[in-house]
Nucleic acid binder design. Structure first.
Length: 590
RNA sequence: GCGCCCUUAGCUCAACCGGAUAGAGCACUCGCCUUCUAAGCGAGCGGUUGCAGGUUCGAGUCCUGCAGGGCGCGCCA
């Protein structure tokens, strides 16, 4: 089964081939001029250039070859040589029926499913969650769902940043603050027994508070920095006190992260961290050395990754620092090795801020040199920053970093207000109302992000995102809920869906939009750009809304009523499916 | 200094290998609820796609230069 675009492409490509022209030129796309046609092919223009003939003559010859096609109501040549195709109502009705009967709602599967790992770019133990993590999780979750829906086997890994210098800083700061913690750490480090329960007093709030202070001190004070480095090395040597305290940091952080991410409808398959590959590092370094990739430089051990033709000189990958510790890039490299051994992915997608592009380029090149992946298997899918209304990276009114949990709560509060304003949900139970407010909040946040191409930065404006008018998440939920309401009423009245017959302009438009699902999914998949799916969901909602306004469903005469009910059912299913790919859930009512 | 990204309507953003008249939403103006959820629908207003060249039958899209903005550039992650 293929969509209308695909089916027509085959016919037009065959017509091109029949004229001795390259078949691929016959590719059909949705029409740029819906007033003139449903679909178009621009191939005659390109072909004319290649063979030196008049494009309109070539187009006419193609049109003649297509003349017998029963699907086509008209074939017209327009402008310099566009081939405009209009479908019969019958062909549209048939396709609508196909979509309605299809569990995948008209979406295809990839020909060769792959194993794909999505890396969400690592929330860190020490650093508070900021808006960058929101984008990574929203986009990463959507890419995971998209790839999965297309047929790939996909794992999402939170890839916790739980190792390295930041941990040394934090352990030192926690020890400075509490003599009890300090004594316990030192006792354990010395091989004595100590009550590790004192570590349980350390909370996530403590970490959030201590880290920025410690990081600032480490920058200003060399002694402080040296101590943190020594602690880091001690942690990497598994000294019992450091290790036990570190474990506590990790636990409190993971609990909070899981809660926050779950509230956003983001769930990870793997909660791996940088610490999980710690044991791989020494053997890996030895192996890199044996392969002759390591170079001693200024007391550190590096891998040079420059290539012929580089426009600028990339810094090398720093594998072992002059202090003897593993670096950020080292754990990334070890993670690549670990994933190759455990999952052997065809593709690893790093969903991380665009600003880290150079870092990933360096790590990837090192991995290719080491043979841990083959060229092209590692893919950095970068995204822009989320800015405040002043155009600068988003900050709270006080100038601080907004925590993810606070942002979610802020959005929920806004959602509740909006629901009250609209007088909605007043006769629902408090639990259901809260559930709806949560879904509205998630839809608002996610759709606002995903409707933009991931690579561009965008402005975070909560009032706009939670608005229930216009191109927003709540609008999409409203449309879906409205269909559910009609279907519920139909069920109460015992009305059954029946064969789909297309007649009205609004019905034609709706079916053409339903048919475009596959195109949107394929584009999103190929470009790793969920905004194509977001755009489709919005267009589908709009097309339905027009249909809803123009074509009464339950009041229509029985045959038409059955047809429109079937169309509405298929629309809802596809809309929910598209929203699901975006990670947005729809309530039953609102 | 070197490199990467960005600049599209008053604002926020789209635009499928280069195709016809560059599209949405917000804001603003007007019309539509005794009929399935008006958080909706319809109509209108709004553009020298930062600037200057080039390639092409055809450029927001490709190339060159310039201006403005953002980001990155070895021992943090």
């Amino acid at each position: 089964m293929s969509d209308l675009k695909g089916g027509l492409s085959e016919a037009v490509e065959a017509a091109f081939a029949g004229l001795g022209l390259p078949a691929e030129l016959g590719r059909v796309t949705a029409s740029d001029r819906p007033d003139l046609a449903d679909f178009q092919s621009n191939g005659a223009l390109a072909a004319a250039k290649r063979v030196g003939k008049n494009p309109r003559e070539l187009a006419a010859a193609v049109a003649e070859a297509l003349a017998g096609d029963a699907r086509l109501a008209s074939i017209e040549i327009a402008g310099p040589g566009f081939i405009n195709l209009k479908l019969t109502d019958a062909a549209l009705g048939e396709r609508a029926q196909e979509i309605a009967n299809d569990p995948r709602l008209g979406a295809e599967m990839v020909a060769e499913p792959r194993r794909v790992l999505v890396d969400y770019g690592g929330p860190n133990v020490a650093k508070p969650m900021h808006v960058g993590h929101l984008r990574a999780s929203i986009i990463g979750e959507s890419i995971k769902r998209l790839y999965r829906f297309r047929g790939d086997t996909v794992l999402g890994d939170a890839h916790f940043g739980d190792w390295g210098y930041q941990m040394g800083l934090l352990i030192g700061a926690a020890m400075d603050e509490s003599p009890a913690v300090r004594d316990a750490v030192e006792a354990l480090n010395a091989g004595e027994t100590a009550d590790a329960a004192v570590f349980n007093a350390v909370t996530l709030a403590d970490l959030d508070r201590l880290y920025p202070e410690a990081a600032a001190k480490g920058k200003a004070d060399t002694d402080y920095r040296d101590r943190a480095r020594k602690i880091t090395a001690g942690l990497q040597d598994r000294r019992a006190g450091y290790f036990a305290l570190w474990q506590r940091f990790r636990d409190v952080t993971q609990v909070a992260l899981e809660r926050d991410f779950h509230a956003l409808g983001v769930d990870f398959d793997l909660w791996k961290g940088e610490s999980d590959v710690e044991d791989l590092i020494d053997p890996m370094v030895a192996e890199l050395d044996a392969k002759g990739l390591l170079v001693d430089d200024q007391g550190a051990r590096i891998i040079r990754v420059t290539r012929e033709g580089d426009k600028k000189e990339l810094p090398p990958l720093l594998v072992v620092s002059s202090e003897g510790s593993a670096m950020y890039g080292t754990t990334d490299l070890a993670t690549i090795l670990d994933r190759k051994r455990s999952f052997d992915p065809h593709l690893v997608i790093y969903c991380v801020d665009q600003r880290q592009a150079d870092h990933f380029e360096i790590v990837f090149r090192a991995a290719y040199l080491a043979g841990y992946a083959t060229e092209g298997q590692l893919n950095h899918v970068g995204f822009g920053t989320m800015n405040g209304t002043d155009g600068k990276p988003f900050k709270t009114r006080e100038g601080g970093v907004l925590k993810l949990a606070d942002m979610i709560e802020m959005t929920r509060t806004k959602a509740r207000e909006r629901l009250h304003e609209a007088g909605l949900g007043e006769n629902l139970s408090p639990d259901e109302f809260e559930d709806i407010a949560g879904k509205v909040a998630v839809a608002a946040l996610k759709f606002a992000d995903l409707q933009n191409f991931r690579g561009t930065s965008y402005v975070f404006d909560l009032d706009r995102f939670t608005s229930f008018e216009g191109k927003t998440g709540p609008y999409l939920l409203y449309q879906a809920v409205r269909v559910k309401s009609v279907l519920r009423r139909a069920a109460e009245e015992g009305v059954q869906p029946g064969p789909i017959v297309v007649a009205e302009p609004a019905e034609r438009e709706l079916v053409l939009t339903l048919d475009a699902f596959e195109t949107a999914l394929a584009e999103a998949y190929d470009r790793q750009a969920p905004n194509a799916v977001a755009e489709h969901a919005y267009r589908l909602s709009q097309a339905f809304s027009k249909f809803y306004a123009a074509c009464p469903i339950l009041q229509a005469e029985p045959a038409i009523r059955a047809s429109r009910l079937a169309l509405a059912t298929a629309t809802l299913a596809q809309l929910e499916r598209a929203l699901d790919v975006l990670g947005i859930a729809v309530p039953e009512r609102m």
